[in-house]
Design a protein around this nucleic acid. Structure first.
Lengths: 135, 135
DNA sequence: CAAAACTGTAACATTTTTTATTACTAATTA
DNA sequence: TAATTAGTAATAAAAAATGTTACAGTTTTG
């Protein structure tokens, strides 16, 4: 199962892009995503740590973009919310006395690194503005 | 969390490629992966359904390749063990009355489809033989 | 100043997915 | 006939993701 962090964060940022003049509350955003507001605030905390958004506490508070949406790419969102693209690993350490077991993870990692490079290139070409314009 | 199916299946197939003349038992394979033999047999059941391997029951039984490893690509393994590459979706259905909620999943799906195409192209270029030669 | 409406976070509960185990039937070999 | 193996179902355990509650702190507004 893949966590919804990237999707949720992208959803949040799309909303903020669509309403660039407002501080949107976590309650409001949660209503669009259909998600618990606490989880929205957690993703926003992550975005704040990366200086992508800024929040205002107190009544009429909320969150808004801190950067121009044409200057953020999906690659950046990807990197903030995802480890790396991969097709998984077996859970346990493979047998180091087997020639295959000894190198399987290393070889998978190399494969996945290539995958990431290709995907990163794709995501780098799409700004938050581009993505938001699809709505 | 991503399941280990692709990694496990690739591990199994690499072993079978390395020992093309033997029927390898699930017990032996499990020892290389460090995994319960029942789970190995489950992945083998999947491979059998795709006519990639054949098994022999009974004493001295086991599994061996049914096809030439130069004729299988990692893309095929990927398709047998993975849905699609994606960066996830929020768990609940988003709010259809919000312009963003209404289209977010559709737009993410389109993005992920592009990703899959790129990854598929990469995996298509690597045969099981190629992969096994790295060991 | 007090009430209301927010964010920020921690602690804990629930749900879902993945992995592991046990147990048993059937097949094959020696 | 005994030993070894695949096949498979049922169940358990572990891990991860999501959800909930609670409450402290901040800001606005009457």
């Amino acid at each position: 199962m893949i966590s919804g962090k990237f999707a949720i964060t992208t959803h949040i940022l799309t909303l903020l892009t669509k309403y660039p003049n407002d501080y949107l509350s976590s309650e409001y955003i949660a209503g669009s995503i259909n998600l618990n507001p606490v989880l929205v605030r957690k993703e926003i905390a992550n975005l704040k740590a990366h200086h992508i958004v800024e929040s205002k506490e107190g009544k009429n508070g909320g969150t808004k973009l801190a950067v121009d949406p044409s200057n953020i790419t999906l690659k950046q969102i990807f990197e903030m919310t995802f480890e790396t693209i991969n097709l998984g690993y077996a859970k346990n350490q493979p047998n180091p006395d087997c020639p295959v077991g000894k190198k399987i993870n290393q070889n998978l990692t190399a494969l996945y690194a290539d995958m990431n490079q290709k995907v990163s290139l794709q995501l780098e070409g799409i700004s938050l503005e581009d993505f938001s314009n699809q709505f």
